[in-house]
Amino acid sequence: MPSAWGLVAGLLTASLLGWAVWRVFGGYPQAKEPSLALTARELAFLVAVADATYPEGGPVPPSGTQAGIPAWADRYVASVPRTVGILMRLLFFLMEHATLFFAAPGRGGRRRFSSLSSEQQGAVLEDWRTSSWFPRRLVFSSLRAILTMGFFSDPVVLRALHLAAKQIESPVVEADLLYPAIGAHRSTIAYGPEDLVAPSGIPLAADAPLHPDHAEPTQ
């Protein structure tokens, strides 16, 4: 028979464990679309932190989620080496749950980041950004770097800032007669010596058409 204290301690441990499991796994929305690398929990964190970092409106209107940051981050994590991807996911986990130790101001400040109010989320980010402890600033910088790279992958953002890439027809040079597309056989090279063109050297015009990936979609 366990003693009464043992029973209390067991109940407390079980409660703590249950709470920890819920905090990490519970109450997250289902992902709307299948992801490449990230879980629904990680995407929920990215939605929250993307919009806290890039709220809707202002001179560059899209919010973080409207700019597609969570989907971009998913693609990015899928494209990097596995160990690097794990580090990024640890970074997301750390920021989602670090409120346990660095609480947001106000009521419920120790809830996970994605459950905080937008004011609390802003306060948490500011606390990390201005921390006197270099590793915390570095964590903030690393997270914000990922979010910023995602924000700038949005053609709407690029067009708003006049940074959309111009259309450039790549001239065929001698090297193009030697190398196939990555993964393909050299027999697939479509060019011959008759296709060779010297680079034009003509400066790109300010009103040159945009690259199809950055141009406004046509109806």
Partner: peptide, 21 residues
């Protein structure tokens, strides 16, 4: 590339967006 360069901008939120402008 803009996304790499923009990492240098300080802050976040609407202040950061104003800087991007």
């Amino acid at each position: 590339p803009a996304g790499i360069l923009a990492v240098r901008f300080p802050g976040f939120g609407h202040d950061l967006k104003k800087r991007f402008a």
